[in-house]
Design a protein around this nucleic acid. Sequence first.
DNA 1: ACTTAGATTTCGCCG
DNA 2: CGGCGAAGTCTAAGT
Lengths: 227, 227
Amino acid sequence: MRLIVARCEVRYSGRLDALLPEALRLLMIKSDGSVMVHADTGGYKPQNWMTPPTVIEYEGDPLSHMVVRKRAGATEDRLDIAITEVVSDVTHDMGEAAALEKDGVEAHLQELLAEQPHWCGEGFRLVRREWPTDIGPVDLMCRDDQDGWVAVEIKRVATIDAVEQLSRYLDRIREDPAMAEIQGVLAAQQIKPQARVLAESRGMRCVEVDLAVLRGEREPDLTLFLV
Amino acid sequence: MRLIVARCEVRYSGRLDALLPEALRLLMIKSDGSVMVHADTGGYKPQNWMTPPTVIEYEGDPLSHMVVRKRAGATEDRLDIAITEVVSDVTHDMGEAAALEKDGVEAHLQELLAEQPHWCGEGFRLVRREWPTDIGPVDLMCRDDQDGWVAVEIKRVATIDAVEQLSRYLDRIREDPAMAEIQGVLAAQQIKPQARVLAESRGMRCVEVDLAVLRGEREPDLTLFLV
DNA sequence: ACTTAGATTTCGCCG
DNA sequence: CGGCGAAGTCTAAGT
């Protein structure tokens, strides 16, 4: 990884055009070809960047110009960095950094609910995960205690978009007379109030699930019933 | 901006839990409180990070531990960085970097189409931009050559979400008997096939527009008709 | 404070 | 390789 602190002006042209006036910034060049231009403020995002695969040209000694290019379909993405002063320029060999282990994302939620579909509704049995339709897969297809079909849409955070998505699936599936009575359930760690209102106005049920409970690390919160 | 190259193990807990095993990485701490953990590969994204506002604690000399914390409602987001070796540790005062000037984002597309609404449909005249409804503003409200109302939704890239959004606007506006016949147009630099199918199945028209043509930098591509 | 919508979204999966 | 959905999305703007 090469870290250059330099006074520079940056031009990007590609999907849009952008100009960064001259200022002191960090140029970060990873060994995979990623290039990022960071200011000392502005949070998480670089002011400018290019993702691999790239071709990087360096000009001048001391460094006075960098061009980063990328073939993006018909057009070319291009980052022009004009350098007027190099404050620091160091390279570090970092080897391979081990990958990230995540826990708590939607796929994990789907796994747990597939194993314990009763959290989505009483008596629910799983028919299959990723039930295919021609507009995309339904997260969980179940049967309820009356043997009726139920499509379950799973989100970490459910917004209006999730309700629209489930609506589309239900509309499509109901075109099949054999499944015209299918019901919809929206299951999420968090359901936004507006999403809940829209979902219930469309006859879908909403279920907020607790990751710790699904994992069996914690008993369901019964305090409300113990008063 | 402080740049630390160090062998470290990183734990994140908050919206999810994640662990980065010990490896050599770059720790980037901006003066606004942003903290990023970058590997030498993996492109644009940090392996781990925290956005401002944060509280950062440094322990040990040489640095052996960092804790980055953030109040996020009821819970706390937390980044624990255990450092076993500091390879480099430098701080640069960068001052204020001027902001980015962009050209070509959706707002510009809306501006250009507002000036030249005929690209959305023959004989279209603009009534107003950002026409208010109680579920959000319609990008462009126009009248067509028959004097009929037309709501135009503008995207840089139009996906199914854009169709849903326009559908919601049309449904709402049609509740007013005076506008029950309003038509919908989806205008975008790029329209995804499934979005096009859904839009047309709902009676909306789709228009792909070319930024260069809108700007008058290039004539409409007529080669198809010249064969 | 919360919600909505855009982003050079990026990223990953699956066809 | 293209399309589609998720993301610790992030971020800015409006209410």
